Simulated assay, not measured.
Amino acid sequence: MNLLHNQAIPVDHGGAVVDVVADIRPAGPDVVLLLHGLSCTKESFAGITDSPALAHLTTCAIDLPGHGRTAPLRSGAHTLEAYADVVSRVVVRLAPRRLHVVGHSLGGAVGLIAAQGATSLVTYTSVEGNLVGEDAGLVSRQIAELDLEDFAVNEFHRFVDSLRTAPEADLRAWGEWTATCAPAAVHESSRSLVEWSDSGKLLDWYRALPRAAYLYGALGDRTRHPVPLLDESTTVAIPESGHFPMVDNPAALYSALAAIIG
């Protein structure tokens, strides 16, 4: 397995250098860029390296600023717009011949924003990504409503502990990822995620992309929203999985992704 861990990709954002930490598996000029969800890390996509159907593609999973091993931004809030700018600059550094963007949850929204200026983009795949207001679930809205100091001092640690002690394997994994994040980044990106989900723009942008697909856990509630608003030919239910199909059923997820990329 040719996997390079923790490769720093330096990019300029707001006049400062951001060292975006990435796991890159080089395999050719076509790149699959993987964007994690709220208070998650690049490790959420670790299983992609075990998918033989994607072995011919370079894969690059990054930690967004304030998440995992990428340091928080030095100035400015951790908004989805800021993340999309960083992602776009990472794409320039990667210089793919053909680009395939995959975003989970918050990462799906970030990928959509970044896709607006990506000339090399061929496919965009949202994995349980935010498209409409209902997709900004209880967790992101509760965090967004809290005062930053209260969240950072008190609620962040309670949130991590509740996830780490959950009976579900995907929630426990989420807890481990969240523990590596900066509380301010989680708080600010939650507020931005709610705003963008409520804006109505994400669904319109998704519909405008020529090759977009939506993958969702069959055990979740996505059949209520946003699946009814999407073309059935672009939606795929991942069996035996919920909000984190990359944890619950990675083989099925990456098999579906390979079929979409083609």
Rank of each mutant, 00 (worst) to 15 (best):
Q7K: 12
Q7V: 15
A8W: 00
I9K: 04
P10T: 07
V11C: 05
V11F: 08
H13Q: 13
H13M: 02
G15P: 11
G15S: 12
A16H: 14
A16R: 14
V20T: 07
D23N: 10
A27S: 06
A27V: 01
G28E: 07
G28D: 06
G28L: 08
D30H: 10
L33S: 02
H36Q: 09
S39N: 13
K42I: 01
G47M: 05
T49G: 08
S51E: 15
H56M: 11
H56V: 04
T58N: 03
D63S: 06
G68N: 09
A71G: 08
A71N: 10
H78T: 04
E81K: 04
A82R: 03
A82V: 02
Y83R: 00
Y83K: 00
A84V: 05
V87F: 06
S88A: 15
R89K: 14
V92E: 15
V92N: 10
V92P: 00
V92F: 02
P96G: 08
R97A: 15
V101P: 06
G103T: 09
H104W: 14
L106M: 15
G107H: 11
G111P: 11
L112P: 04
I113P: 02
G117Q: 13
T119M: 07
T119F: 00
T119K: 14
T125R: 07
V127C: 11
V127L: 15
N130A: 11
L131S: 05
G133Y: 01
G133P: 01
A136K: 01
S140Q: 11
R141G: 02
I143T: 08
A144T: 04
E145S: 12
E145V: 00
E149T: 13
D150K: 10
N154P: 00
F159L: 14
V160M: 08
V160D: 08
L163E: 03
L163K: 10
R164Y: 00
E168F: 06
W174M: 09
G175E: 07
E176Q: 14
C181G: 06
C181E: 09
P183L: 05
A184D: 08
A184Q: 12
A185G: 08
V186G: 10
V186F: 07
H187L: 12
E188V: 03
L193D: 03
G200E: 08
G200C: 07
G200M: 06
K201L: 12
D204L: 13
A208L: 02
A208D: 10
L209D: 04
P210I: 09
R211V: 00
L215V: 14
Y216Q: 09
Y216I: 06
G217F: 12
A218L: 11
L219S: 14
T223E: 14
R224H: 12
H225L: 01
P228T: 04
L229F: 05
D231V: 03
E232A: 14
S233Y: 00
S233L: 12
T234R: 15
T235R: 02
V236I: 15
A237R: 09
I238C: 11
E240N: 15
E240C: 09
S241N: 08
V247W: 05
D248E: 13
N249M: 10
P250Q: 04
A252L: 07
A252D: 13
L253D: 12
I261N: 05
G262V: 03
